[in-house]
């Protein structure tokens, strides 16, 4: 009797993984190792260039130094303002489309599978295309300049804002909505009085986050001709004026840091 009790812990020794799990994990690591090797082979590393890289970097750094600060007031500042406008207008524009789409995508507000699918497809297509690719398309449509940039930013942001907002709407506690329904409120009133107050902090937080991302994205859109800092940077790189490139990079860095600070400040107030 007492013997079996003493033996019990031995037979019930705890192990984190079963043998099968251990084998599966080893196999997974093997697959990852093989995948890394295969992809290294396929990207065709030119080893001479790779060994050379530190030297090249030093060289580029030397050419960038000192940054051509005088270039900032002449050209960079105007381009920076354009970048701000592209990001801000694009974000606002995306909001107009993302709001109705997020409502259609949230299955608790729109209990219609077809409409949910439609909205989700729209949101996914918006997200599946990179801002730069959207910009290429809209440069072809509107011609080069900030308009193409703003529309590209908007189209990329619709998916982001719509998806996150749609998910926030789906997580709204059902109780308050049920109470409004019981009082005879229309669907519109339910959205305005039940859903909106509940998702408002999330909404502003999403918009600020997207604005932050858009500032960064719109500073490179100029590479494909869609206005803003990227256009100036492209011109400087093409003419090997690395001192100017340095100023532009510093500007982008400063803007991203400032954007981060501003967004953090407002988010704390909103939530």
């Amino acid at each position: 009797m007492s013997e079996s009790v003493a033996l019990a812990p031995m037979s019930k020794a705890w192990q984190r993984h079963t043998l099968r799990q251990k084998m599966a994990r080893t196999a997974l690591w093997l697959v990852i190792a093989i995948a890394v090797m295969l992809s290294l082979r396929s990207i065709n590393v030119i080893w001479e260039f790779l060994w050379d890289a530190p030297e090249q970097m030093m060289d580029m750094g030397r050419r960038m130094w000192p940054p051509d600060m005088a270039y900032y007031p002449k050209t960079v500042h105007a381009a920076l303002m354009e970048t701000f406008h592209i990001a801000t207008l694009g974000t606002l524009f995306s909001m107009v489309f993302a709001l109705p789409l997020s409502i259609l995508a949230a299955h608790n507000i729109t209990p219609h599978k077809g409409l949910n699918l439609f909205a989700k497809t729209m949101l996914v297509s918006s997200r599946s295309v990179n801002s730069l690719v959207w910009a290429l398309l809209f440069v072809a449509v509107f011609g080069p300049g900030p308009l193409a940039g703003a529309v590209a930013i908007a189209f990329r942001s619709i998916g982001f804002v719509g998806k996150l907002l749609g998910e926030a709407l789906e997580e709204v506690h059902f109780g308050a909505i049920e109470a409004l329904k019981a009082a005879g409120a229309t669907q519109t009133s339910q959205i305005l009085y039940g859903y909106w107050p509940a998702v408002k902090p999330a909404f502003w937080s999403i918009m600020l986050l997207r604005w932050d991302i858009n500032i960064r994205e719109s500073s490179v859109l100029g590479l494909v001709g869609a206005g803003g800092l990227g256009m100036v940077m492209n011109a400087a790189i093409d003419t090997f004026q690395w001192n100017r490139v340095a100023v532009i990079l510093l500007t982008i860095f400063a803007v991203v840091v400032i954007g981060e600070v501003v967004v953090t400040f407002f988010r704390r107030r909103l939530i």
């Binding site: 308050a176 109470a179 409004l180 019981a182 009082a183 005879g184 409120a185 039940g194 107050p197 509940a198």
Partner: peptide
Amino acid sequence: LREARRRIGMVFQEYNLVERL
């Protein structure tokens, strides 16, 4: 249905208030 619901008041276990209003 909405017009009928207006005439019926309801109180809930979890109060079901709009928290942020």
